[in-house]
Design a protein around this nucleic acid. Structure first.
Lengths: 272, 272
DNA sequence: TGATTTGTTCCATTATTTGGAACTCAATTT
DNA sequence: AAATTGAGTTCCAAATAATGGAACAAATCA
C-alpha cells in the first residue's frame, strides 16, 4: 500500500490520492462532489463528474440519501443533507481545543476590539474552529467549519511555520496556488522564505493576501509532538488596521497563543 | 472536564429500524456512537457498544479516521473529526430554505428584540438552521445544527401541527418523552391534544417545557406537499416574556412564517 | 408519433467486508 | 523475573455486499 501518508486535498481539487478506505472512500468522493458544488446537482451531472456506471452511482447516491448525508429534492437534484449539521454540531460542541481556547479568544477580542479567529491545520487547509466578533448579525458558519488555504491566511502561514520541515517539504509541492489578490503567494519559494521569517518572529501577517482590504496578524499553536497544529489571529479591515498597529498586536496575539498552549499541556497532558 | 457543556437530549437514539444502506449504514452507526457520546471513546468502549468483532471494528474505525470523519488522539481515544465541520459548513452555506428565510428572521428580530430561531423537522427532531440574536458573544453551534426533540420545543410543536395525520400517527408512538422541566409533555395524548389546538390557532407556545425559564412562540412553515416542514420562533427569558406578550407576538411570527412560505413558492416552485 | 435523454431495476460477476484466531506490546500481578 | 491480564493490531478463508453492463421505464424533445 504505497499510499501518500497524510497530506491531502487542496481545496476543491479532485482527490488523485485515492485513499484505501474501500466502500467508504468511494462514497466520500460523492459526498465531496455534491458539497463542493455551488448548486444542487442532477443525477446526470454527478454521473459525468464521478465517472461511474449508472447503476452503481444510483445505488450509492440512494444510500447517502437514505442516511441523510445527501438530500434529493422534488426536481431530482442532490444537495448536502441536514444530518451533516447535526454531526458537526456535536463535533464542534465537544472539541477540547476550542473549549480551552474560548476564554482566551474572548480576552484577545476585548483587548483589540477586532475579530479573533481560531483555526486548525488539516492537510493543507485551515479549518476555522471559532471566532469572536462584534455586534454584526451572526453569520457564523460563514467562517466556522470553513476550510481556507494555508498559504494565504495568517493562521495558515503561522501554522506552517511550526510544521516539521519534513512535513513542510511534503506539503509544499502539493499546493496549488490560487491568486486571490495581487499579494497572494503564488510560488513555493517565496512562501517558504516568508515561513522562515515567521518561524523566527513567532507571528505571521496576512497583508491582504486572501481578501483585498483584509489584514491580520496570527500566532501558531502546536502540541509538543506537532501532531496538532493551529493558530489564533486578529483580523480586520486594512483602513483600520495599519501594519504598525498589527505589529503592535503581534505581542498580545502571541501571548494568547502561549496561554492556550500552556492550558493544553495542563488539560491534555504534556506528552503530545 | 471537557464534557457537560451541552444538554444531552437523546431523541430518537438507537436505530431499531436498521436501514438498508449496506456498509455505509454500519459505519454511520459507529459515527453516531462516537458523536453522541459525551467524551472521546476508547476502542474497547466502542467494542462494547457496537457489539462487533474486534477485527471488523478495528478496520471500520480505521476507515472513518482515514477519511477524517473520526479522530484518534494520542491516548487512543476516538472523537468526531473535523471533516464534519467542513462538510456541514458547505451544507449550511448553501441551504436554500435558510437563505430565503434569513432576511425575514432579521426583520422579526428587529421587531421583537428577542432571539429568533429557524428550524426544520427531521424525523422526530428539530434541527436548528439559523438564529438571530443580540450582542452576546456568539456561541452559534450551540444552537445551529443542534437536534432538539419536537415534543417540547415551540418550533417542534408548530411543525407537528402541520404534519399529515398519517405521519403524525406514525411518529407519536416512537417518541420517548424525556421530562426536561415540570411542564414538559410526557404523554402522547396530552401532546396530541395540544397539537390540535396549535393547528387551529396557527401558532405554538413553549411554556418552559424544554428549559426552565425559557419561553417561546412559534409558527409552522411547510411546503404544499408537506415534504418539507419547519418553523420559526421568538424565544426569550420568562421574566421578560409574559404569556400576554408572547400571545401578541404570535401575529408577527405567523406573518413571518407566511412571508417565508410565499417566497419559497416563488423561488422553489409551488409544486412541492 | 418516434427519437432521445434521463432515471431506475435486475443479476451474474467481482471485490470488499467479515469475524475468528493468532499475535504484539505494555502494564500488572504473582 | 516470570506469568498473567488487558488492549490493540494483523491475518486470511468464508460470507456478503458492491459492481457494472444491459434491459427497462418515464419523461422530454423533434
Amino acid at each position: 500500500m504505497a499510499q501518500a501518508d497524510e497530506q491531502q486535498e487542496h481545496g476543491s481539487v479532485s482527490r488523485e490520492t485515492s485513499r484505501d478506505t474501500g466502500t467508504l472512500g468511494k462514497l466520500m468522493v460523492l459526498l465531496d462532489l455534491v458539497t463542493h458544488a455551488d448548486a444542487p446537482l442532477r443525477f446526470t451531472d454527478i454521473l459525468a463528474l464521478a465517472g461511474q456506471p449508472r447503476g452503481t452511482l444510483h445505488r450509492q447516491l440512494g444510500h447517502l440519501v437514505e442516511e441523510g448525508l445527501l438530500e434529493l429534492d422534488a426536481e431530482g437534484r442532490y444537495a448536502p443533507g441536514l444530518r451533516l449539521l447535526d454531526l458537526a454540531a456535536r463535533s464542534w460542541a465537544r472539541n477540547e481545543f476550542r473549549l480551552i481556547a474560548a476564554p482566551h479568544l474572548a480576552a484577545l477580542h476585548r483587548q483589540t476590539g477586532e475579530t479573533v479567529h481560531l483555526g486548525v491545520l488539516r492537510g493543507s487547509s485551515i479549518i476555522y474552529l471559532d471566532k469572536v466578533e462584534g455586534h454584526q448579525p451572526v453569520r457564523m458558519y460563514s467562517q466556522i467549519g470553513n476550510a481556507s488555504p494555508c498559504y494565504c491566511t495568517g493562521v495558515g502561514k503561522a501554522a506552517l511555520s511550526v510544521l516539521p520541515s519534513a512535513r513542510l517539504d511534503a506539503l509544499l509541492p502539493g499546493l496549488n496556488f490560487n491568486r486571490f489578490t495581487p499579494s497572494t503567494h503564488v510560488r513555493p519559494e517565496t512562501l517558504l522564505a516568508e515561513i522562515r521569517d515567521i518561524a523566527a518572529a513567532g507571528h505571521a501577517f496576512d497583508r491582504e493576501e486572501h481578501e483585498a482590504g483584509i489584514r491580520c496578524v496570527a500566532a501558531p499553536i502546536w502540541s509538543d509532538d506537532r501532531s496538532f497544529i493551529g493558530g489564533v489571529s486578529v483580523t480586520g479591515p486594512a483602513y483600520r488596521l495599519s501594519m504598525e498597529l498589527l505589529q503592535a498586536w503581534a505581542v498580545p496575539v502571541q501571548l494568547t497563543a502561549m496561554k492556550i498552549m500552556d492550558e493544553m499541556r495542563i488539560r491534555l497532558g504534556p506528552r503530545r
